[in-house]
Design a protein around this nucleic acid. Sequence first.
DNA 1: GTCTATAAAAGGATAGAC
DNA 2: GTCTATCCTTTTATAGAC
Lengths: 213, 213
Amino acid sequence: MARTTEGGRKADAARTRLDILTVARAEFTEHGLSGARVDAIAEKTRTTKRMIYYYFGSKEGLYAAVLEQAYAGIRTAEATLRLDDEEPEAALRRMIEFTFDYHDEHADFVRLVAVENIHQGQYMAKMENIQSVNADILKALDGILGRGHAAGIFRRRTEALDVHLMISGLCFHRVSNRYSFGTVFGCDLSAPDIRSRHRRMVVDAVVSYLKHP
Amino acid sequence: MARTTEGGRKADAARTRLDILTVARAEFTEHGLSGARVDAIAEKTRTTKRMIYYYFGSKEGLYAAVLEQAYAGIRTAEATLRLDDEEPEAALRRMIEFTFDYHDEHADFVRLVAVENIHQGQYMAKMENIQSVNADILKALDGILGRGHAAGIFRRRTEALDVHLMISGLCFHRVSNRYSFGTVFGCDLSAPDIRSRHRRMVVDAVVSYLKHP
DNA sequence: GTCTATAAAAGGATAGAC
DNA sequence: GTCTATCCTTTTATAGAC
């Protein structure tokens, strides 16, 4: 049988690993690092707890792998954006819309990053290549801002880092703080009409800031 | 001795309660709800673990009390703002600066709210008066926006809720995501020069948005 | 590579004296 | 109201067979 071949075993191993990662991601997303239970994760996989330790060494090792996978996901998505040959304002708007949509559609990524910040970012600090994760999007943003400023469209001179923080803050917060905001103000930020209203607002806010010093 | 009087005992009880709350707040802030240890909290107080259960019933009860205290803190601070008789733009700027400063100076509050959102806001959902916490600041903001729009200064028509989300997002995120942002971009968002640059940016961004539709 | 059973320790909660 | 000592469940992690 295929299972007894070298390739078959490797394929199974990869599938098992991915199965564990997927289940673990949901668990860490929902309960945080300390709140997540290895037993609960094991029960929801096709395999057993022993395998989690076999592949990832520890609960923390598993968490680190989940976090790395999540960052790889957004990096891959960002790589599909091609903004170089577009007009500066249109390119910027499209980038902001992309960031908004990605956070909106990947609440689990947002929650994982929130969890990691509760733990002082100590696990991502050990990740290799982490610096390069958002380096591309920052470079792209810097290009857009430079072209826009040269063309006289963006009259305000800014650091790409600052604008990125601004975009990120506006897109991240409405997802990460969905519950507290919803409770305090009695509204659902994920409702379609509010969502699209805020999408427009975020884009317009950044553009207004750059155009009108 | 004073300790044996009714008043003395009550004063001690209040002090003990507050001591526990203060220590617990630091612990929950640093490790989250699940990550915090009741033993660790007890060790850092003047009193013992037994007293924590005596006063707060459970770890979750203690956490809820800490959360409530934190929200009471920001409500109290916001109440000191008197913005009614100022010009709309000046009033708005002062409100944003206040929000920025409060988040900047109370990172523990920010982290607690982040923790609470990891837990789907289930503890604040049970808090009474939570709806009224930010009702005042929203009402004040609504007044400023209305006056500004009437005076033709804020040409964009907006919901106070949306503007509040915007301000909150910009002020909250740079504190809550300090670690991940710092690691990915190799910078310290709490450094004084970056801090004051961002303070100006946040204020200008909101004002630009409202003035230039 | 995968399973069952279990060790080892941590951590939430309480009993009962004073 | 406060202290010491302790229970008992939960949870991380591993041993050892196949």
